[in-house]
Design a protein around this nucleic acid. Structure first.
Lengths: 240, 240
DNA sequence: AATGAAAATATGTCCGGACAAATTTATCTG
DNA sequence: CAGATAAATTTGTCCGGACATATTTTCATT
């Protein structure tokens, strides 16, 4: 029922890193200091640190110490997997919401959101760029069932915001991400928005974000003109 | 200098699994049995098993035991990451080589292989299906610099083979996989091969396989008709 | 001040033991 | 035989200690 002690310590350390009490690039307290601080054995301290290693928040080096290499925000981008990392457009892309509306789900949207056709949904339409002010490389549409619940209201409010939605929403409690990738013709209106030829093909990435209980939070569809953007990912196998 | 003992035990267990002495789907010896067999403490046995967990070769469950979930061959498909896993068409797709030829690298191919334009390369062209005999869902082109070295000769020989190239080549020593994903129009001849409409867009995945020293082994380009095939991946975040 | 050896520090490996928690197996009961 | 209960099994958590190995710091020497 109750959490293991090493997990409690790991959670606390994670919070400390998130809150900036341990900055990226600095060293965490040593094992023995953790033992004293939390009144645990060295083995338990090591287990706790192992959790953070697995989350790619720290790196350890014999004789040197325990280095903080990421905080939670970066973790959202990096720790699912190195592929997901890159599929999420790198850590530093910007989403500019162009308009927000309430829509009734058609067939396609109903399938994406897993709801009834005709359900009331909110729809955010935006453009994504690598940096604030730079030319957008991707059209991004975000959908959510319902318009009256608190999260939907907050989503409607960020209309026009120039920073990543993820940042605004602080959705650190995501449990699962489902992702479909396929190719599609780029709709004319989106081609005009992005300034690419009308008949371009595009890479379509549809993502569904679920909370830990399995309930869908939002769905997002991103369209990338195929010839102009390439997803590149490098994976290194663990050497035996 | 010398390997830690848990590493030695992990290596031995890995070999046992690879050689089939411990089949996938069966249980590994219990911790206490490993302690007795290798004359190690339980802690060391657990460390050894942790290595194999990290390699995704085993899964452990309290009260139940240690299940073998993959051998080395499957590891090539599964252990890079769960996304890569799915991007590699699952574990059980079949590649049928339709023809083999020696070509001179044009601009595009030279970039893909990182070689000079005009270099002599081998080119295998094939179709990929989920099972032997089933309708193909993807066009697959494999390239390699040079035609006279042993690996190229072997590659030429598998022409017409109906099993996965990876299986034939036993390339278990891959160090890195680079992967580009974009969208492209599907060439007419490929559309005819796959029996899809001529003007279909397609998902293009170009992969480069390197050996541990960083030398490129082969490059592969796969084209998927966009409307007919969807890459779907589910990722579960580690719960905090 | 620069060098090099020694000491201190920090993580890595390995052992022993004990109890907890989850699962499976055996046993008892109706 | 079916179902509940108890026992055995197996992994998980946690403690204590010891020494090894890599790195950093200190300090004496030149």
């Amino acid at each position: 029922m109750s959490k293991p002690r090493y997990q409690t310590v790991a959670d606390q350390l994670r919070r400390d890193i998130e809150k900036g009490r341990h900055q990226v690039g600095t060293l965490l307290p040593t094992e023995l200091q953790l033992c004293a601080a939390y009144e645990i054995s060295r083995h338990t301290a090591r287990e706790a640190l192992r959790v953070l290693i697995h989350d790619r928040m720290i790196e350890r080096k014999q004789g040197s110490g325990t280095l903080v290499i990421a905080n939670s925000r970066q973790r959202f981008n990096h720790s699912i997997s190195s592929v997901q990392d890159l599929l999420q457009y790198g850590a530093n892309t910007r989403l500019t919401i162009k308009h927000t509306e309430i829509v009734m789900a058609d067939d396609e949207l109903a399938e994406l959101l897993g709801c009834e056709v005709g359900s009331e949904c909110i729809h955010l339409h935006g453009l994504r760029s690598t940096q604030k002010g730079e030319a957008p490389f991707c059209v991004s549409d975000i959908y959510r069932i319902g318009s009256k619940d608190p999260l939907s209201r907050r989503l409607m409010e960020v209309s026009g915001a120039v920073y990543a939605l993820v940042e605004e929403l602080e959705i650190g409690h995501i449990g699962m991400v489902e992702q479909d990738i396929n190719a599609a013709p780029l709709p004319t209106e989106n081609a005009l928005e992005l300034g690419v030829p009308k008949s371009s093909v595009c890479l379509r990435i549809a993502r569904r974000y679920f909370d830990p209980s399995g309930k869908l939070i939002v769905a997002a569809v991103n369209l990338h003109p195929g010839s102009d953007f390439v997803y590149s990912m490098s994976l290194k196998q663990s050497k035996s």
